[in-house]
Nucleic acid binder design. Sequence first.
DNA 1: TTTCATAATAATAACTATTACTATTTTAAT
DNA 2: ATTAAAATAGTAATAGTTATTATTATGAAA
Lengths: 130, 130
Amino acid sequence: MSKYSRQREAIRDFLKSRHDHPTAETVYLGIKENIPNISLGTVYRNLSLLSELGEIRKLSTGIGPDRYDGTVAPHYHFICKKCGCVLDLKMNDMDHINVLAAQGFNGEIDGHIAYFYGNCPDCLKERKNV
Amino acid sequence: MSKYSRQREAIRDFLKSRHDHPTAETVYLGIKENIPNISLGTVYRNLSLLSELGEIRKLSTGIGPDRYDGTVAPHYHFICKKCGCVLDLKMNDMDHINVLAAQGFNGEIDGHIAYFYGNCPDCLKERKNV
DNA sequence: TTTCATAATAATAACTATTACTATTTTAAT
DNA sequence: ATTAAAATAGTAATAGTTATTATTATGAAA
């Protein structure tokens, strides 16, 4: 049902090749280097599609626009309250918290998203210099 | 520095009086019943202010617009993937996960937000009826 | 109890992020 | 090669939110 497109492949590759968490705008500008006439709508459409297919992850951090993550293996994110950057955390799965949440709840829980907030290493350093 | 306003009080009271998680639009329409000429901008400005003051909480669920919560005591939320509703979960604090996250991380972690996803009781029931 | 500086407001415009529309192009099966 | 389906570029439209501005409300001081 879904056909190959150079644009979609470029978007997937772009995300898989980096470990940060770019916004749609950043992806757009990045792809533009190789495919100058790609349109922003194409980027959004494919980011949505790839998210639905589970090939990438969408992060709604509550600070600024949505971000996208080429790493789908379960992991958690840190968001700096100061500069808004998003970092991967190297920590184990917390599947046990689904069980905690399900206790005394009549619905069905099949997953969770957790964001950790605070000050990133760079902002911490800067604070000491002031 | 900040002066009393009838509108702000009404917004605070509105949120404290209910246990759901209304959007700015819902708050606006609710307050309008008593203060017909309140403006949407005023609602947004005060929701932001009250969040900053810690009197209410803002929820960015990743599904639809931001929501607001009059309950500031720590608790967690469930978001239905089917209907998008947001429910409170009756579960204990998970402060221990901050410690897990901080291991091997050079920044400072002072909090987290966790959303649990799945099917709400109502949507589960509906699914069985199909 | 008026005066006055400050803060808040209503109304509206502007902006950001995202989605929808449409004519054209690409893909891939026949 | 033909052709139907899917994807695209370019653009318009939308949703949610923030900014601007002239006016009004608040509350401290005279």
